[in-house]
Design a protein around this nucleic acid. Structure first.
Lengths: 207, 207
DNA sequence: GTGCACTATTGGCGCTGTGCCAACAACTAC
DNA sequence: GTAGTTGTTGGCACAGCGCCAATAGTGCAC
């Protein structure tokens, strides 16, 4: 009888991926403190020590999971650059809502709840994701190259992004709003920002 | 020589308050995982076991701190109910920004960063605070008693609340926006919601 | 003033979870 | 078959937390 091996030896990348996937599943299910490294190791069918070998620390593994979850889905929009501002915004909002409902609701849960106590590293990751999201929005509405008051515009859009994320939750999770209602909210608010708030900022600066 | 006591015996309420204050300080400074019960006990000048005696679990203590930090400051606005909608909104935004800058930036940090893994109890606390905030906004703009599409309006305002909080951070913490800019953003967006988005929802429902 | 009952407070035991590392065993090349 | 490589294991050591019996401030009765 061939003594079959008690465990298989995998390529590092492959094993790493397996562990990562297990961590993703569990961290999506329960908060950080209620997921033990033993849980993850069991889920991956692996000794606990291997987590540290591949990812360093439990926290490091967690941050890597968050980084991926927080990143905005690829901008695969057709990106028809033509049309009026209203039309472009309408298209952007449509794309956003599509990618929300399409994806398995990973992004929408990110940065959900916590409270107090700044965690610089975690914050850095989420701010990076937030900034990428801003780029996506600006690209999509063809305003990526405004140089006047660029920083203010970006800050406005960051705030808008939180509105959008919350509204998305009201639609998909809490079911208090319909897609049409969210669509209208996002369209009108973005329009207001670009057509009213931003010009006022520019004028106020020059006046 | 009178053998002075090694520790003083306090009224339970008083001791509890001391421990709570120490916990507040530390949890505001570092994230949950980097604050040990030993730290809190040292800060309060007390044995570690006393935390469990008064608050049960480290997590219970944490939740209590979060509950207080997340609660919106009292609505001490003069609340002049008169004036046009624009004026009322303007006053509401002013009050909001005042209370943001006045307070020692506890509220604005709440629900800042985290990611993934729903924590039902923590979520409940933050949602409760969010809902209270919605009440404040509606009161202040004299729309607390609308019964038509009440739930939708509240959902819109919840989303708006996240916009407001993020914008507040852009002003007070990140310094990317001036008070005037945030003021304008908040005023115009709230106006848009009340005068445009909400009516459209009503019309869409009846059409 | 002295002793006593009351209870706020302490200190340490036991358990769980994490990081670390030396030994081990699956796989490869010769 | 054998030796070298290295992915993988298992357990040791330590830190943090909940718990509880023992301790010692404190006010009251007399």
């Amino acid at each position: 009888m061939s003594t079959e091996p008690r465990w298989r030896r995998l390529e590092p990348d492959q094993r790493r991926e397996e562990i990562f996937a297990s961590a993703q599943r569990l961290f999506a299910l329960r908060p950080y403190g209620e997921v033990s490294t033993t849980d993850i190791a069991n889920e991956a069918g692996v000794a606990r020590g291997l987590l540290n070998h591949y990812f360093g620390t439990k926290r490091d593994l967690y941050l890597e999971v968050v980084r991926e979850a927080a990143s905005v889905p690829e901008n695969v929009i057709d990106h028809a650059p033509g049309g009026s501002l209203e039309e472009r915004i309408d298209a952007a909002v449509n794309w956003f809502l599509d990618s929300l409902s399409g994806q398995d609701a990973a992004w929408i849960n990110a940065a959900g709840s916590s409270g107090l106590g700044r965690d610089p590293e975690l914050e850095r990751i989420l701010l990076k994701a937030e900034d990428d999201a801003v780029d996506r929005v600006l690209e999509t509405i063809d305003m990526a190259d405004v140089s006047d008051h660029r920083e203010e515009l970006r800050a406005f859009i960051r705030a808008y992004g939180q509105l959008a994320k919350t509204a998305g939750r009201e639609w998909l999770i809490k079911k208090k709003l319909s897609r049409e209602q969210v669509h209208h909210l996002l369209r009108q608010c973005l329009l207001t920002i670009v057509e009213d708030v931003l010009p006022e900022t520019v004028a106020g600066d020059r006046g």
